[in-house]
């Protein structure tokens, strides 16, 4: 029974992490790259308009970071809850 509780907690921690990362995923692409693109385009950095850069470059880099964080955090969670393969 204790192992079942353990698994339930592991799953909860996983869902929480997932929710956080997917919110960022949504914000950088759909919000920054599409919904608010015109507003962000009024900000210029280097030779880019920010909204355009988010849509064609920035969101891609963030996606990569999100998966990296997920891999690292889940490896820690696997160890913590002793569910490593």
């Amino acid at each position: 029974m204790s192992s079942n509780n353990n698994h339930a907690d592991y799953w909860k921690a996983n869902l929480k992490l997932m929710g956080l990362l997917l919110s960022i995923w949504f914000i950088v692409s759909y919000v920054c790259g599409i919904l608010l693109v015109d507003q962000l385009n009024s900000i210029q950095f280097a030779g880019f308009k920010l909204g355009f850069w988010m849509a064609q470059q920035g969101s891609l880099y963030v996606f990569l970071i999100l998966i990296w964080v997920y891999v690292k955090r889940m490896n820690t969670l696997d160890k913590k809850f002793d569910v490593e393969e």
Partner: peptide, 10 residues
Amino acid sequence: TGGYVLLALL
């Protein structure tokens, strides 16, 4: 590319 976040997490 965003699809890979879904693949990795879900």
